[in-house]
Amino acid sequence: MSAEPGRSAEPGTSAEPGSGPHVLILGGTTEARRLAEALAQDSSYRVTTSLAGRVSAPVLPPGETRIGGFGGPAGLAGWLLAHGVTHVVDATHPFAERMSFNAAEAAALSGVPLLALRRPGWTPGPGDSWTFADSLAQAAELLPGLGGRAFLTTGRMGLHTFAHLTDTWFLVRSVDPPDGQVPPRLEVLLARGPFTLEDERALLARHRIDVLVTKDSGGSATAPKLTAAREAGIPVLVVRRPAVPQGVPEAATPSAVLRWLGGPARH
């Protein structure tokens, strides 16, 4: 069956008999969208992308979409079986650790093959001045010693972690406005990537940024800020990625996922 772009997958429905492989993509990343685009061009696949719903107006990928949680590993396992899912691809953000662990447990419960699409992380190069933190809380502890005007690109969900830093001025960039507890000296820039190197250079200079705070998200969409920081001699505070489930096979690119789907596991 050829999936219709933007169509929603309704709870309680199941895959059509004989419709071929049904791939559930746990999405929210550029790689997830690219994979959905590739699968939507092959009429032998049915593709559903699940989005967490944390962005108010997400850019929907082609194929079917589902927005919202599953109710934990058992709920996800039940959804996989009820909808005839034959393959699951965990293409969530590298810091969406709870969903990755839920996916691993759901795959074990349901017997549906799971592959994790994890883009490589960033690594410092010549001229970079990087300091690593194991968590947002540790980053908040280290930040005052690195600068007083911070470009904070760790996402709006964790802003409360930095709310006690009254002497630091923050520039925060996010798709949606932050809510909840935030730092007192804060300017919000609403924007959606990708961002160009020229834009990042201008932003750092315009706001007199002297430290960049980021998660090790990897990928190219937001990497230019790292180059701009290196060129400007600005230190970068990098939050390391959380642990991932053990024993889950991984792929680094959508092309590698397509090869996996075309292998022996394909029905």
Rank of each mutant, 00 (worst) to 15 (best):
G193P: 15
G111V: 11
H87D: 15
Q181T: 15
G263F: 02
P144T: 08
R98I: 06
G63S: 10
A223S: 08
G68Y: 07
P126I: 03
G12W: 00
G72Q: 03
R54A: 06
P21Y: 01
A265P: 03
K225M: 06
V47Q: 12
E31H: 13
P124S: 10
W130H: 09
E37V: 05
G63D: 08
D90L: 07
V257E: 03
S255H: 09
V188I: 05
G193Y: 02
V188R: 09
R34P: 04
K215S: 12
A232H: 09
H93F: 05
E37P: 01
L80I: 05
G218V: 08
P144E: 00
R206L: 03
A52G: 09
S100E: 00
S43D: 14
L226P: 02
R230P: 02
A108D: 15
R156V: 09
R98V: 11
E187A: 13
T222S: 14
F95C: 03
M157V: 14
D176Q: 01
L114P: 12
D199Y: 09
I209D: 08
A232Y: 03
Q138P: 00
A223T: 01
A140M: 08
R185L: 12
G145M: 01
A205P: 00
I25A: 05
T253N: 06
S217L: 01
L26A: 10
T196R: 05
L171T: 15
P264V: 02
L26D: 08
V23E: 07
H87W: 00
H160Q: 13
P73W: 02
T92C: 09
H160I: 00
H93A: 04
S110Q: 12
T227N: 00
R7D: 06
P254H: 06
A82C: 11
R185Y: 05
F101V: 00
G155L: 14
L143M: 14
L115I: 13
A205Y: 00
V188L: 01
G147I: 08
L80V: 07
L24G: 13
A191N: 03
E16S: 02
V55R: 09
G147Y: 10
L24V: 12
V257Q: 01
L165S: 13
R173T: 12
Q41T: 04
L258K: 02
A191W: 02
E10W: 04
L51R: 10
G63T: 11
D42Q: 11
P58Q: 00
A40K: 04
G148C: 09
A116Q: 14
V238L: 15
L51S: 06
L39F: 02
W122R: 12
S255L: 05
R206A: 13
P124G: 11
A256H: 02
D179I: 08
T48K: 10
T154P: 12
P126G: 14
A133G: 06
